[in-house]
């Protein structure tokens, strides 16, 4: 007997008919949505209507990663595991393209509708994801509202010209983010220049400390640390050479949660950066 058949049997016996609901009733909006990824969690929380979203992942409640951590308490928690999502009997499952692939495959085999969202690296991508989420949840109007807010915010950022300063993102283990990353898109949205353009670094790559020092960025962006215990990964933030080029106003902390996921609130990261640039330029 195939897995699908066993699943069908279980569904029939236990009365979990959520999976077949969508297909039976055509294009009606899903009523019991489960999200398995912190980014789809947050998009769904922003877009979904009352009672439509049933469960979000455990990471959605982590204030270090999730902007909507406070709201996440209103939903049932899942841990991204196929079995628990199956038992929730959702009529739509939302996942990231990097979400535990075996779990996603299993849910698909069992006949659930799983929609995957790629990680965003541009503001266009964020707009598309919001609209797609709106369509999936039957909440196109709400999605258009969010897109309009985002557009207005981006326009606001570029209305007043700011001195064209150079910015470097410096993360744990000496990683920096260049073209093709969301951080790069945020820097450009703030009207600033990423040092990686000059250094020929694309995507997320290691940057040796001495190369960073010699590139002499006007602003260095650190992710906000929310770990209780130290690790060598963050040791370079204390390096005397690093502190010599990145201290005071030139060092900007932008909490990770604003740009781990591409969402309307990613605009907040660009605003913070823009404000920091204003302060540096005044000196």
């Amino acid at each position: 007997m195939s897995v699908a058949r066993i699943a069908g049997l279980i569904v029939a016996l236990t009365g979990f008919c959520g999976a077949t609901d969508v297909f039976a009733s055509g294009e009606t909006a899903p009523k019991r949505v489960v999200s398995m990824n912190v980014c789809t969690d947050q998009l769904a929380m922003l877009v979904a209507g009352e009672g439509q979203l049933h469960s979000v992942s455990n990471l959605a409640a982590d204030p270090g990663i999730s902007v909507l951590a406070d709201e996440a308490g209103r939903y049932v928690v899942n841990h991204g595991m196929g079995e628990e999502v199956f038992l929730m009997g959702p009529d739509l499952v939302l996942a990231g393209t990097f979400t535990a692939q075996p779990a996603v495959e299993m849910l698909r085999r069992l006949g659930f509708r799983v929609e995957q969202f790629p990680p965003e690296s541009t503001f266009e991508g964020i707009r598309d994801s919001i609209r797609r989420m709106g369509q999936l949840l039957g909440r196109q109007e709400r999605a258009e509202e969010l897109v309009a807010e985002l557009e207005a915010g981006l326009d606001d950022l570029l209305r007043e010209p700011v001195a064209n300063l150079s910015v470097a993102v410096y993360s744990a283990n000496s990683y920096t983010s260049g073209e093709g990353s969301l951080s790069h898109a945020v820097i450009e949205a703030a009207g600033l220049t990423n040092i990686t353009d000059k250094l020929g670094i694309a995507g997320v790559q290691r940057i040796p400390l001495e190369q960073l020092v010699l590139a002499d960025p006007d602003i260095v962006v650190l992710g906000e640390q929310h770990y209780e215990k130290p690790a060598l990964a963050q040791e370079n933030f204390q390096h005397p050479a690093f502190r010599a080029i990145a201290s005071g106003d030139r060092l900007v902390r932008i909490p990770d949660r604003y740009w781990i996921c591409g969402a309307p609130f990613t605009l907040e990261a660009a605003r913070m950066l823009r404000q920091a640039a204003g302060e540096v330029a005044e000196q």
Binding site: N173, Y227, L232, N236
Partner: peptide
Amino acid sequence: SNPFAALEIVFWMLGSLADRS
């Protein structure tokens, strides 16, 4: 509890002088 710590096993086992101050 720091997610980076586990990756640093290799430093302690094999040694490195990168970015020492």
